[in-house]
Design a protein around this nucleic acid. Structure first.
Length: 151
DNA sequence: GCCAACGTTGGC
DNA sequence: GCCAACGTTGGC
């Protein structure tokens, strides 16, 4: 079983929205590296939810993969901002797993706190510009984060 | 709102 | 295939 982190802007789609919806198609990701990770997600994988462009930004809760990635429907929708003319139903370019809400953490783990925690210094989140919106989290990092946010 | 750090696009 | 120009992400 693998662990992941996905970013979302709470003004666009927050963990509260996920709590309300129970499950959601994780769509509109338009970065190849992130796309590749979305395709690797397996049912039952744990997914940390990170609020970006937020006050404060940080890890806010947990979700779980309940459906493998399928073609992201927004790539076919001409009226969508995420329409991709190079994608076709036969050869989709972008993929979306379905995530299910698990819980909101009692404590939000802010980006400065993550930076300060030496055990989390190797997180992909902190690497080079850190713009990747979907990325793996190691077993160790995941268990450390769970401890910190529950305390 | 600014801007650094990327990724993508397209001319050549 | 190089690389300049441009667009985007996301912290601050």
């Amino acid at each position: 079983m693998a662990y992941w982190l996905v970013k979302t802007e709470p003004g666009v789609y927050s963990i509260a929205d996920l709590a309300r919806d129970k499950r959601t198609l994780w769509d509109c990701v338009r970065n190849y590296q992130a796309r590749n990770y979305l395709k690797q997600m397996q049912i039952g994988d744990d997914v940390l939810i990170y609020h970006s462009n937020s006050e404060p930004s940080g890890i806010v809760g947990l979700a779980q993969v309940v459906k493998l990635a399928e073609a992201d429907p927004t790539q076919f929708d001409r009226r969508s901002d995420y329409y991709d003319s190079a994608a076709s139903e036969k050869e989709p370019r972008w993929f979306s797993p379905t995530l299910e809400f698990v819980r909101i953490f009692p404590k939000l783990l802010t980006l400065p706190e993550i930076r300060k925690n030496l055990k989390l210094k190797d997180m992909v989140l902190l690497q080079r510009g850190s713009r990747l919106s979907v990325h793996p989290v190691s077993d160790k990092e995941f268990s450390i984060i769970l401890k910190v946010v529950s305390a």
